[in-house]
């Protein structure tokens, strides 16, 4: 499977197509509900964030604590649609991509086009397996948020699919349409 090293070049990013299956290698930053809410408050109060988002992949995730002798516990994506309202913030701060699970809202397509950003998805509910594709984790800010603290997560061939590309193409809607049937007439 094709490997994308983080950070990718502008060209590499723009040639990614919705539906591409890849493995990611390199660093990412976790940001989800509580941390995103706080980041929004910081920005609106013009307080400098204690970490940089520029040029990063934002992973909507919150892993389990690692067991002794392991780099990582169980880790995996959380529902990205819940973070849709924070997408303008994430992209304005300079992130080039987000990583989560499930479809994002339709309104997010235009944002991806505007900021030339990508949305990667991976599989939820396989945290034990995905934990083996992470070589290290460290908390970098807001430890008081517990499992939602901001962490740096290092990927090692972490499997993803391009759900929305930098041109605003939506892979998931298309693939659901392809497999949708309506034998009953109800759906």
């Amino acid at each position: 499977m094709r490997e994308l090293k983080i950070p990718p070049s502008r060209l590499e990013l723009e040639t990614l197509k919705a539906g591409d299956e890849l493995v990611l290698s390199g660093p990412s930053i976790t940001l989800r509900d509580a941390a995103l809410r706080r980041a929004g408050e910081f920005v609106s109060q013009r307080i400098k964030l204690p970490f940089s988002v520029s040029g990063e992949v934002i992973f909507h995730a919150s892993p389990t604590p690692p067991k002794i002798d392991r780099a990582c516990g169980a880790i995996g994506p959380t529902t990205a649609a819940r973070m849709d309202s924070f997408l303008p913030l994430i992209f304005e701060l300079g992130a080039f991509a987000t990583l989560g699970k499930g479809p994002r809202g339709h309104e997010s397509l235009e944002l991806h086009r505007k900021f030339r950003a990508v949305y990667f998805v991976t599989i939820g509910g396989i945290g034990a397996l995905l934990g083996q594709r992470v070589s290290g984790i460290e908390t970098i800010a807001w430890e008081d948020l517990g499992p939602e603290a901001v962490k740096r997560v290092f990927f090692e061939e972490f499997p993803v699919v391009v759900a929305i590309d930098s041109h605003g193409n939506d892979h998931l809607e298309e693939i659901y349409d392809a497999y949708r049937t309506s034998g009953s007439g109800i759906s």
Binding site: K101, G102, P103, V121, T122, I123, G124, V161, L172, I175, Y176, D177, A178, Y179, R180, T181, S182, G183, S184, I186, S187
Partner: peptide, 13 residues
Amino acid sequence: LANELGFGPGALG
């Protein structure tokens, strides 16, 4: 009925 939706395993189709 639910299997008509096309989401598929992992919501990847």
